[in-house]
């Protein structure tokens, strides 16, 4: 059991939770994730560690409401308990001095991007961040990203904030202007697919952090498998970051939808329960 010590509401659907986990706070590096089971009935879901406070012994998770588990998590208040929390999992990001790094985050992908932006900056890189969301309400962690970037470009699909357009348009405008040595791409599958096509076109080495379905997160089940460079890899233990240009995003997208029907049903049942309360 791990206690929630504080909570921040980033937008209607996005919440940040600081959770007590002293060992994880100490061991974690940028790029690591944890598996969370909110209560006895909950699924185990992967969440990237957005930041950590070793002194306080807490880690911060940023959660967007999508299904039952994430809704249960975002409903937690300070003092509440998370039933199970395990980590840190996965390989840490390879942080070194590349030169200029383009950090691209879509939607809630900005949360896992934040520790990488921070670490890349600390390693002496020039960091340009492009963060994108459907609309103004969904732009998260802008200030925190700004604090560790040399430049930030915000894109919204509807133009309600920052510049209007898709993330790839924002990326193109920067790539046209200056030499990029490395790109980091995190976000919804479809955004990662197109963002990585963009960097591929310009021959920019890129890593993508994949967010597949997971069950255990320790290499035990293979639910998280993806094809990278023609080989099957397990995201939880071989990743979560891979060479973005080698990932079979189409396969990943179809596997992500594998449990759509079951999830929708669970979601409806959960909504009914909540409505009844």
């Amino acid at each position: 059991m791990n206690k929630v010590v504080s909570k921040r509401q980033f937008s209607e659907n996005v919440v940040g939770l600081d959770i007590e986990a002293p060992r994880i706070a100490k061991a974690r590096r940028a790029g690591h994730f944890v598996m969370v089971r909110v209560d006895e009935k909950g699924e185990r879901i992967p969440l990237t560690i957005s930041s950590a406070d070793v002194q306080r012994g807490t880690i911060t998770l940023v959660i967007q409401k999508v299904g039952v588990s994430s809704r249960k998590l975002t409903a937690l208040e300070p003092g509440d308990m998370v039933h199970d929390l395990v980590g840190p999992l996965g390989h840490a990001t390879e942080v070194k001095k590349y030169g200029t790094v383009l950090c691209c985050g879509g939607g809630v992908g900005v949360a896992p991007l934040l520790p990488i932006v921070e670490a890349m900056k600390a390693a002496g890189n020039r960091v340009i961040s492009v963060i994108a969301a459907r609309n103004k309400e969904l732009v998260i962690l802008e200030d925190q990203i700004r604090a560790h970037s040399d430049e930030v470009l915000v894109m919204t699909d509807d133009g309600s904030y920052g510049r209007k357009g898709l993330i790839t348009e924002g990326m193109e405008s920067i790539i046209e202007r200056e030499k990029i040595d490395q790109a980091v791409i995190i976000g919804p599958g479809i955004m990662m697919k197109f963002a990585s096509l963009t960097t591929k076109k310009h021959n920019i080495p890129s890593i993508a952090s994949l967010n597949t379905i997971m069950v255990d997160g320790t290499g035990m089940c293979g639910a998280c498998r993806v094809t990278v460079g023609g080989k099957t890899r397990f995201v939880c233990v071989d990743g979560p970051e891979f060479d973005a240009h080698e990932v079979d995003f189409d396969e990943m997208l179809s596997r992500l939808n594998g449990y759509k029907d079951e999830e929708q049903k669970a979601d409806q049942e959960y909504s009914c329960q909540v409505d009844k309360k």
Binding site: G219, G222, T227, T232, S254
Partner: peptide, 21 residues
């Protein structure tokens, strides 16, 4: 605990999973 797969074409289709999963 690590499941083995056979590495044959189509093995990553939706609906194919390890017995462990």
């Amino acid at each position: 605990g690590l499941p083995r797969f056979m590495n044959i074409p189509g093995e990553n289709l939706v609906g194919i999973l390890s017995s462990n999963e």
